[in-house]
Design a protein around this nucleic acid. Structure first.
Lengths: 145, 145
DNA sequence: CCGAATCCTTTTCGATACTG
DNA sequence: CAGTATCGAAAAGGATTCGG
């Protein structure tokens, strides 16, 4: 197991999660009540995480973000930025120039999610090769059916 | 800021992410190449995380998992379990009884993702109230338009 | 009991055209 | 420049039925 993932957290992570599970179960996993559902639904969408990381490099204007994330459509960029603003993760400042320019930046809340996000990114990068190997094995075994 | 989120990781999380961003950008964010896309696409779906946490409490049979996660359909349970097995996150053992029983359990890889996941869960729980307040403020401000 | 197969609804996302 | 509005394709997800 990679160095980053060992240590005293291995057991703690498990214990924490299983302890809270009963509580979520009691609430019926209601997405409007369950923080985990709520947060995962957002960072699980196609662009949110990427935009957060872009804004982590520096505050950006609308079209700057679009240049940094080549494939995003204007529609999705607008929508994702507004959702992030609504959740208090980013700030939006309009400079009354002509034509107008708008700058987006991470709020303290947005900054703070980068920490657990970085943990997940580290896990993804260190385990991705293993996942791909597992997939190949699985698919190869399936062929023999 | 909650205790769990302070400390020497606050800056490191940011630096790590921005450093890697350039590399992902160079690869065109290809989902088949980018570990982060690949991992987030999975844990971002509706059931994967929940099932991982269920199996973290103990190995379970198919119908046990279904009982623990009330709203999941058989179709999605089957599919999510197979995807997790394919990625090497869980193991599947068939006991040749009659009728057959099948037991699912976390693999070491599946265990290891619980660590970064627990970090995200902790963040979600400690920040969810703030997010909800931000939403109310945003929506209230929007009314005045 | 475990799951495959089918059908259908909902959600998400992209393309395009238009506005202040 | 920074969006909005509308449309349609595609994917995800749910309900139901069937089979080993």
């Amino acid at each position: 197991m990679p160095r980053l993932l060992r240590g005293n957290h291995t057991a703690a992570g498990n214990a924490d999660l299983t302890a809270r599970f009963a509580e979520w179960q009691r609430l019926g996993f209601d997405p409007t009540q369950c923080p985990v559902r709520d947060v995962l639904d957002r960072i699980g969408d196609k662009w949110t995480t990427l935009i957060l990381i872009v804004l982590a490099t520096k505050p950006c204007r609308f079209s700057e973000v679009q240049r940094m994330v080549p494939d995003i459509s204007k529609r999705m960029l607008t929508q994702t930025l507004r959702d992030l603003e609504r959740d208090g993760m980013i700030t939006r400042h309009v400079y009354p120039t002509k034509p107008p320019s708008v700058e987006y930046a991470l709020s303290p809340l947005g900054q703070s999610i980068l920490v657990p996000l970085a943990g997940l990114v580290a896990w993804a990068e260190s385990c991705h090769a293993g996942i791909k190997r597992a997939r190949e094995r699985f698919d190869a075994a399936g062929q023999k059916k």
